[in-house]
Design a protein around this nucleic acid. Structure first.
Length: 807
RNA sequence: GCCGAGGUGGUGAAAUGGCAGACACGCCAGCUUUAGGAGCUGGUGCUCGCAAGGGCGUGCGGGUUCAAAUCCCGCCCUCGGCACCA
């Protein structure tokens, strides 16, 4: 009899689906457990073997949690809007809607063949008007609170495709930034854009990180991205501005080291700030204007390039250092950014590496004002900047003050103010593309920008004959779409033709799973607060910043609006390690190392595939795909299945074997909870190896074994479960309990060391005492040979493990 | 440059102070088979040795300890991220 996994897997998948076996019950009395995985972007290529690793892990965990008596919410949806689909549609000359539908169909077929235990009743799709109605609603709420606004900003512009590109769509080629699709060089352009004011939440996004069970590296990257710096704003009055009266003007700088003020030997302003000066009528040299023109024409990326080779020009303006009243020159350089701080800095070359390089290049004075060797009165100028802490020197009345203390003292004395700066910028959400959520706004000549009335949502994305990008949003070309009435005055108005960044769609999908069919509200408050927050989120490490930060922002916003009673959406987060091609490289079509799961499932079955992906190695590490690997787990399952052909025996299992069974129950449970799937499977293999040597296998063992294996190989274990005469689903059977008495060994192998080297082992009773062990060891022939008649100086006894005789 | 993760057999790995290499893949030998990309049994870190047995061994160098893959110090390499944020 051969095991027809194809039919059996299909049979159970069909039954599970029809019985709605994995429906998450809102009203269940059991404690809830919400598991989440990144909902897929349904691409035209379909899944490769790397994609399901995270899904399978979640499924194993979900099945385990159900058996442990939890009501598990575990669902799937489709992040269906966005550029890859749109670009693919353009390429094949089809409508993105059709392409997306076909892609979803294929993805659905693929995820279903893995036997994943989703609650399909909760399936969602971001391109469905029933879903994006609430994305639009969310945008309007943000707008009403002043958190969505329109402003001019630099965007990536592809002159050939005549469209704005997302940062992710700009790729590097021969040192240039080019359009991912047409490879023409991208330029930066100032355009009006919609922004979400995530910067308002910077402090909370930072401080709430401390309560999360997330990988440390991910927390750190979010912190770095938010980039908090505490410092001060200091004012420098300006003298000798050509064509301007003395000391009428001033410039403010942001610094994290006000304690180094007396070492500021020049100021540097950004090209953006210098341009502002010119705009208000200050006179400058042609050299300065040329420098501004050049650097403002550069893209930010290019400006960051030649870091080591600093450029700049003297502006002709001088400032007064408010500390020592010295007149210092004001320089212009693109190493100072217009978009951070005040766009101007005080340069302290003695204590800042960048200022040091600049001073060296333009032969500007370098002064040391922080000395690590107190009580030295002066400090020699070093051949590199000294950024550390110490005591102040050459700083007037602050001489000798501890640098950390001096920060605030100097700020106060100079009438500066404490200031906190963040690197994080507001979130640009406008896309001049077709395949996305229409931004629910109108432009009225009389009333200006007005949000669409909530009762008129959704603003449906219309079908367009020609949706290709042409330099302005494709929706702008549709007269029927654009023409509307102003929601405020009822007069003629135009709709906003831009669409939303797909990161907006995905910033709240996990909330919708809790109440996916609600047509009256974004979600029911009771339901969302019952299921949320997410107990376990498995997500790729590439999402450490954007999606996770946006989701946290939106959650906090909805909390502040009174819709949620929690502030953090994802309590525990783990990253899935990437499966690489068998060549060790990242899987990609261009490398030709992509492995398709369809053929593997066809050949080995979903169970063998699942077990292999979980057995490959530590879940959070990446491994190369081994084409031989599935054969190994297929063998394992086949041998397990054969075990059941022997039939079930009456009575008890042999004592030692039974002890192993209980150890395995403990280990598999602990390992699944800790996502240590590889070692859980290895424990099951060890158990099987031993079980095969047993004369008889009682029913209790058989059922236990199936339960332990079930999360990994759900189809086969369900089939065998039925074969044992069970009528119910094994999925809802109770996870076995281990007996801690049975786990304790009666005997163990005592390791005998001489000077830390293993010389002998002997089986002894578990309770052996130090004295007994020593006596035993000293009676062993092998041991005596190494002792050479010497008496041990020291004896170390580790109960249950070893004895070490030191001579 | 800075930050993070990591470096253990031919391969994926296990062991988080206590017998390094569990469990698998691959390979070798044998059995079985008309046949095998099937199954079963045994072997498989390197090295000396006919063997018994010994020596060496977790990127490199040092240290702590009765005992180190594991802890500490210094260095090298690989991968990932950030990159003039004052």
């Amino acid at each position: 009899m051969t095991y027809n996994f194809k039919n059996i897997e299909k049979k159970w998948q069909k039954r599970w689906l029809e019985a709605k076996a994995f429906k998450a019950d809102d009203k269940s009395k059991k404690p809830k457990f919400y598991q989440l995985e990144t909902f897929p972007y349904p691409s035209a290529e379909g899944l490769h073997v790397g994609h399901p690793k995270g899904y399978i892990a979640e499924d194993v965990h979900a099945r385990y949690m159900r058996m442990k008596g939890r009501e598990v919410l575990y669902s799937i949806g489709w992040d269906a809007f966005g550029l890859p689909t749109e670009n693919y549609a353009i390429k094949v000359g089809k409508n993105p809607k059709e392409v997306a539908a076909a892609n979803i169909k294929n993805f659905k077929r693929q995820v279903q063949m893995f036997g994943l235990s989703y609650d399909w009743e909760r399936e969602i799709n971001t391109s469905d008007p029933e879903y994006y109605k609430w994305t639009q609603w969310l945008f309007i709420q943000l707008y009403k609170k002043g958190l969505a606004y329109r402003a001019k900003a630099k965007v990536n512009w592809c002159p050939s495709d005549m469209t704005v590109l997302a940062n992710e769509q700009v790729v590097q080629k021969d040192g240039k930034n080019v359009c991912e699709r047409c490879k023409s060089e991208v330029v930066q352009k100032d355009m009006e854009q919609w922004f979400l004011k995530i910067t308002d939440y910077a402090e909370r996004l930072l401080s709430d990180l401390k309560n999360l069970d997330w990988p440390e590296a991910t927390i750190k990257r979010q912190k770095d991205w938010i980039g908090k710096s505490e410092g001060a704003l200091l004012k420098f009055s300006l003298v000798k501005v050509p064509g301007q009266p003395d000391r009428k003007h001033s410039v403010e700088v942001f610094t994290t080291r006000p304690d180094t003020l007396f070492g500021a030997t020049f100021l540097v302003v950004s090209p953006e700030l210098a341009q502002k000066w010119i705009d208000v009528g200050w006179q400058t040299s042609e050299e300065v204007r040329e420098y501004i023109r050049k650097s403002l024409g550069k893209k930010e990326l290019d400006r960051l390039e030649n870091q080591k080779d600093k450029t700049g020009v003297f502006t002709g303006v001088y400032a007064v250092n408010p500390g020592n009243k010295e007149e210092i020159p004001v320089w212009l350089s693109d190493y100072v950014l217009g978009s951070y701080g005040t766009g101007a800095i005080m340069a302290v070359p003695g204590h800042d590496e960048r200022d040091f390089e600049f001073a060296k290049k333009f032969e500007l004075p370098i002064k040391m004002v922080i000395c690590p060797h107190y009580p030295a009165k002066t400090c020699p100028v070093l051949d590199e900047a000294y950024p550390g802490e110490g005591h102040l020197v050459d700083s007037g009345k602050f001489d000798g003050v501890d640098s950390e203390k001096a920060r605030w003292e100097i700020t106060k004395e100079m009438e500066g103010e404490k200031k906190v700066q963040y690197k994080i910028r507001d979130w640009s959400v406008s896309r001049q593309r077709y395949w996305g959520v229409p931004i629910p706004m109108t432009h009225c000549v009389k009333c200006g920008i007005q949000p669409v009335a909530e009762k008129d949502l959704p603003v449906v994305l219309p079908d367009l004959e020609d949706y290709r990008p042409k330099g302005k949003p494709p929706l702008a070309g549709s007269k029927e779409f654009i023409k509307t009435k102003c929601p405020k005055c009822g007069g003629e108005a135009e709709r906003e033709p831009e669409t939303l960044d797909t990161f907006v769609d995905s910033s709240w999908y996990y909330l919708r799973y809790t109440d996916p069919k609600n047509t009256a509200e974004i979600f029911d408050k009771k339901k969302v607060n019952h299921w949320m927050p997410v107990n376990l989120y498995v997500i790729g490490a590439e999402h450490t910043v954007l999606h996770l930060l946006y989701s946290r922002f939106i959650t906090k916003f909805l909390h502040d609006e009174g819709h949620l009673n929690f502030e953090e959406p994802f309590l525990k987060l783990r990253h899935v390690g990437l499966i690489r091609g068998s060549d060790g490289q990242k899987m990609s079509k261009s490398r030709g190392n992509v492995v398709n799961p369809d053929t593997l499932i066809e050949e080995f079955g979903a169970d063998a595939f699942r077990v292999y992906e979980m057995f490959m190695g530590p879940f959070e590490d990446g491994q190369p795909w081994d084409p031989q690997g599935v054969i190994g787990t297929e063998r394992f399952l086949e041998r397990a299945r054969k075990l059941f052909e022997k039939g079930v025996a009456e009575g008890e299992a042999e004592k030692k074997f039974n002890s192993l069974v209980h150890k395995t129950i403990k280990k598999v449970g602990e390992d699944i909870s800790g996502l240590g799937f590889n070692t859980a499977i290895s424990a099951l293999m060890i158990l099987l190896n031993d079980a095969e040597k047993q004369e008889k296998l009682p029913k209790t063992f058989c059922e236990t074994f199936l339960k332990l294996l079930h999360p990994f190989a759900p189809h086969m274990t369900q089939e065998l479960w039925e074969g044992l005469g069970n009528k119910d689903y094994i999925t809802f059977a109770e996870w076995p309990e281990f007996d801690s008495k049975l786990i304790k060994d009666e005997f163990f192998n005592l390791v005998i060391q001489v000077n830390g080297r293993v010389r002998d082992t002997v089986e002894v009773g578990a309770g052996i005492s130090a004295a007994e062990a020593e006596k035993l060891a000293l009676g062993r022939e092998k041991v005596l040979a190494y002792l050479k008649g010497a008496k041990p100086k020291k004896v170390i006894f580790v109960p249950g493990r070893l004895i070490n005789l030191v001579i």
